[in-house]
Design a protein around this nucleic acid. Structure first.
Lengths: 114, 114
DNA sequence: TGCTTATATAAGTGTTCGCTTATATAATGG
DNA sequence: CCATTATATAAGCGAACACTTATATAAGCA
């Protein structure tokens, strides 16, 4: 049987993780694009360890997954999680953040990574 | 113009608040019923100050509102908040918690409050 | 008025959080 | 193999969090 609703405790865990400006923006960006760590470092103007730690938390509960390509590690939304529908509905309610990636593109910082 | 989406920063604040098992369950219960503080104390088996502090946080950002009736203070979902749609869509994704109120009712603890 | 019940606020405490710097690991290319 | 680049992990730290107990405020009632 397909589970249509997420348990309250599980939902609280997801919401707590997404209740952080940085992680919420990350996940919204990943809705439409795969991104590598160094791109997030640029976008959030944040140290690389800090970015890695945020991504690790998102990965631990299965919100995102990673794929290594050469020396880069690309992150993407995990579409097979039991929380996928819940998260996608949630992301529908917040505005697109792709302007942040476009800004990278203009600075040539998107291409150097990919 | 009606705002259909919630700003990322605002969304993060809401999600952080709802990213707590106790507060999320409270809000889900308030979706269908007004509740007073003492009922939450029973339901969550938690100290009265702790319950009051959770409700205060929810009130501060406008998620809930309060109305005094005699010596009791009843809390309800604030339907006029700019986050109302966002929150109601979110609550749609988690299961009804009314069994907790029904349990109170059976113990006669619901009536003594209302 | 004084007593009881309901709720709020204050203060203290251990835990979690998000960051930092330093270091380890992994892959690339000379 | 060595140097460089990308990423992960470890350790430390101040701030925020969720609780507690003690106390204050507010309403109801004898």
């Amino acid at each position: 049987m397909l589970k249509t609703k997420v348990d309250v405790d599980q939902a609280a865990v997801i919401l707590k993780l997404l209740g952080d400006r940085t992680r919420l923006t990350m996940v919204k960006l990943l809705e439409n694009h795969d991104c590598c760590v160094c791109e997030f470092v640029e976008i959030f103007d944040m140290s690389q360890p800090s970015v890695s730690q945020h991504l690790k938390k998102l990965k631990q509960v299965g919100i995102v997954k990673e794929k290594r390509k050469g020396s880069w590690v690309f992150y993407s939304l995990n579409k097979e999680s039991e929380f996928t529908i819940f998260i996608e509905r949630l992301l529908d309610e917040i505005p697109n953040q792709d302007d942040k990636l476009e800004a990278l593109e203009k600075n040539g910082k998107r291409i150097t990574c990919c």
